[in-house]
Design a binder for these strands. Sequence first.
DNA 1: TTGAAAGCGCTAACAA
DNA 2: TTGTTAGCGCTTTCAA
Lengths: 332, 332
Amino acid sequence: MRDVAALAGVSLKTVSRVVNSERGVSEVLIGKVKRAADELDYRHDLTASNLRRSDRKTATIGLIFEDVSNPYFSSVHRGIEEVAREHGTAVFAASVDENPARERDLVVAFTQRRVDAIIMSPTVRDQTYLDHERRGGLVVVFVDREPRGFDADCVVTDNEPGAALATGHLLKRGHIRVAFVGDFETITTASQRHAGYAKAMSSAGAPAFPDLVRRGVRTKDAATEAVLALLDAPEPPTAIFAAQNLITMGAVRALQLRGLQHSVALVGFDDFSMADALVPGVTVVAQDPREIGRMAARLAFVRIKAPDLPTAVYVVPSGLVIRGSGEIPPGR
Amino acid sequence: MRDVAALAGVSLKTVSRVVNSERGVSEVLIGKVKRAADELDYRHDLTASNLRRSDRKTATIGLIFEDVSNPYFSSVHRGIEEVAREHGTAVFAASVDENPARERDLVVAFTQRRVDAIIMSPTVRDQTYLDHERRGGLVVVFVDREPRGFDADCVVTDNEPGAALATGHLLKRGHIRVAFVGDFETITTASQRHAGYAKAMSSAGAPAFPDLVRRGVRTKDAATEAVLALLDAPEPPTAIFAAQNLITMGAVRALQLRGLQHSVALVGFDDFSMADALVPGVTVVAQDPREIGRMAARLAFVRIKAPDLPTAVYVVPSGLVIRGSGEIPPGR
DNA sequence: TTGAAAGCGCTAACAA
DNA sequence: TTGTTAGCGCTTTCAA
């Protein structure tokens, strides 16, 4: 910038004004500065600019997900990006995977790079540690799962009603032995979906079948195994509620391995690619992950401007998509 | 940092030394500094640190893809992240979508944030504009598609041989009227895959069928339409080669709509989720996008350290995954 | 082993 | 409208 000023024969501050499109610079000087900048291949340094600016905003946000390549999260990512783009904001994205320490490490990594906000899906049991960061002015918005021990904006699906809807759909077809396959109960979505399942079961007068409830299932392969175990048991279920996209995919595989995809009903939570192309098509309770991402980003930008607003939980409704697998009767 | 120094009763430089784990500070002072930092909720500011550092490395890289939520790219992203993590590096990720101006805008956005490297899949016809950025010391590595007008490291699949393999697989089963459905020929992968198709056709002595070649197909829906048009033509193909994951998905849909999934053969390029669960399973030429991502990231970090090494193109082999759809004979 | 002074590239505050 | 000076939070350089 100094070199540009020298070449254009103006002061540093004038270059700064031109670069930032501030008003009050004569056309002549604007032209001179722009030509000099062009000639010198000048690139404005946002990190230096930010260091001096009074608002200290970097126009950068960070995303922390279980896995950026999970189709659910990559769609949320996409929705966030759309809104961030309108705000001229760049987006970091990172995965926690199975490593609980990484959630905190990533928060630190992003904080040190002075992101304006973090949008995350919590994986650790407790987010109390974020108090420390918030004192430093960090904005945090949660997606998919609510935080624990930390009050913040949050965008979630109507997990419990959605799960009840899915389970009720099966019960209405005459199923009684409806199995539940879901993630660890420490994951809020998983426990809410289990609650929805349990409520629907009991309000339909169905007994609780502890042997038909499989929790702590995280991966597609684990889901296949869990469902195979259910199907091979002496008293198998006539219908299955799979509480998450990877689990549904694993369940499809298990049903196919046993040749039962046309005789055991299946409803999944979360839509997934090609669910409509399978035979039978897979009935699901679908969320709108892209809209969830957009919503979370909007909340983040509002809070960046107004940090003291009261926090809120936004619930995005889900809906049943009927495709065949959930409409199989309990033939036995 | 000044406050920490004051509270600990040491100089700024000593705090800096402790924060950066430099040697040559007595245990006593290290303890004092750490306690003071804790008490004051001190957070090291990487942006300020970077401004003054001599190497000016931000431990940050940027990704520019067609669409971060495309399963192929989100897997590449994942592979890159794994390697970046080992280097303590944070990862920006952004989508170009259908907007050609965005590729350049994103390069500028990342450059202004002083990323150490950009890993991108080019969408614009010409990358000559990057010369300007490279003069500023930017490292660029390409994935999936080779750049044009710009010499840089590149990680690609063996597109032409892979496409020839897929086409040959169909020809060997006795198909002659094999259709090609692919993206615009300005996309290097699309033109290479078309070249592989054409070579396999001619070396098998099959005539060229201009009416069976559909190019410029970008989305799943466009692919469904294109394949429906092929199937509804007076002389439909007996086999289809779909040159990309979204196109294959669209082709599956089209075949199902016409009830032809068991009579018209299909081989796709790129694997996709649930391809094995469809009926019939979809035969594909599979890449390893995660490994491609890892490789690209390794190249980027090597070049950050040694910018003057000669550039190279790395070809990651693909392989045929046989699942049923590609083994349907030309029943007619 | 520790610290003082200078300055990275930029903008705020003020002055001309 | 334009410029000068100071300083953002940190590390470099050099001196003690």
